[in-house]
């Protein structure tokens, strides 16, 4: 269980960092999403990975899993969902405004402009 969780976090983080370092907005968004997934799973495991244990008090059960990280992850998921929606909208605006999805918005090269006017 620990191995699966740890490698999932590791792979998602690695892929996320690789994508965030690209210079195009679409991979950057994907990368940020992957990083958020990774950190959500990470947050989840910070309450110790325990299989088959309930998070709420019950009779005749002695081992519990910590409910707080689950609540934290729920909050974090909602917030990161909202954030992703915002960044998708902004990037879409940038893409439509400049016809490419470079992170650094380059000014139009001069020859393009003269072609457009002629």
């Amino acid at each position: 269980m620990e191995l699966i969780l740890a490698s999932a976090i590791g792979i998602m983080t690695a892929a996320g960092i690789y994508l965030v370092l690209r210079l195009r907005t679409f991979p950057v968004i994907l990368g940020i999403s992957l990083l958020t997934y990774a950190v959500n799973v990470f947050l989840f495991t910070s309450g110790r990975a325990r299989v088959g244990a309930p998070p709420v008090l019950r009779d005749d059960i002695t081992t519990y899993t910590d409910p707080l990280p689950q609540a934290l992850v729920l909050t974090a998921i909602v917030i990161s969902f909202g954030m992703t929606a915002v960044i998708v909208m902004i990037s879409l605006g940038a893409f439509l405004g400049s016809d490419d999805d470079q992170v650094n918005d380059q000014p139009d090269p001069p020859q393009d402009r003269s072609e457009g006017s002629s």
């Binding site: 309450g47 915002v86 992170v103």
Partner: peptide
């Protein structure tokens, strides 16, 4: 876009720190 991207990365670090600390 730069503002959003860099701030989200910082948020992710913050959350991992929170997780470790907890």
């Amino acid at each position: 876009i730069k503002y959003v991207a860099l701030n989200l990365v910082s948020t992710i670090l913050f959350l991992s720190g929170v997780g470790l600390l907890y």
